[in-house]
């Protein structure tokens, strides 16, 4: 029995520590690297569809705005995560909370500057409460927030506030190895 106990401990440490050995799968996205940025509006039904449609991939969602200083500061790390996990069982989308009238003047120039290639959706104010409730019932709506769903569409991580590349990586890897 004591041997089994140590076996579980070793297994636990392996699952938490050795997380780079994931199956390689194509994780290309809608924008595919071209220069056309298509920021579409999204409602709760649309987001639920994305969450449910996992096809074996985990889902990383970053909620941000160009007016949010910590969001802007962490965004390059989100882009780096997207690039580094492109060939893993990994899908990334971001939910922008600028106003629709700011898409051309603020959001797209920011996406171009950061060379964003992943899908970016914008949440209209009229849908914000439902969206917040869908993502976490205990969340007030303060951004940035980053959420990870596993490949079954179950939420595994809810990260309030700004985080860096290494924090995101650790969180992603722990979900990829579940």
């Amino acid at each position: 029995m004591r041997g089994s106990f140590f076996l579980y401990i070793i297994l636990f440490l392996i699952l938490h520590g050795c997380s780079d050995h994931n199956k390689v799968k194509d994780a290309k996205n809608d924008n595919g690297g071209n220069e056309t940025y298509n920021v579409r509006t999204i409602d709760v039904a649309g987001l639920e569809e994305i969450i449910d449609n996992r096809e074996g991939k985990i889902l990383f969602i970053n909620v941000w705005a160009t007016w949010c200083v910590p969001c802007v500061e962490e965004f390059p790390d989100v882009v780096r995560i997207a690039n580094d996990y492109e060939d893993k069982n990994f899908e990334i989308i971001t939910l922008n909370t600028d106003q629709v009238s700011d898409i051309e003047s603020k959001v797209i120039p920011f996406l171009k500057k950061n060379k964003v290639e992943f899908p970016v959706y914008i949440v209209e104010d009229k849908n914000s409460q439902e969206m917040i409730e869908l993502l976490n019932k205990d969340w007030s709506g303060a951004i940035p927030v980053t959420i990870i769903y596993d490949e079954a569409g179950k939420q595994q991580s809810f990260m309030l506030g700004a985080h860096d590349y290494h924090y995101f990586k650790k969180s992603i890897d722990s979900v990829l190895t579940l």
Binding site: S4, F5, Y8, L11, F12, L15, N136, D138, W139, S140, I148, Q155, Q156, S157, F158, M159, L160, G161, S171, S174, V175, L178
Partner: peptide, 25 residues
């Protein structure tokens, strides 16, 4: 051993999720 393994899986899953929700309001 099977029960222990199941216990471990539940513990691991709970740890991963609640660790990430530590700052919820």
């Amino acid at each position: 051993t099977i029960l222990g393994f199941l216990f471990f899986i539940i513990l691991f899953t709970s740890f991963t999720y609640f660790n990430s929700l530590g700052s919820s309001l």
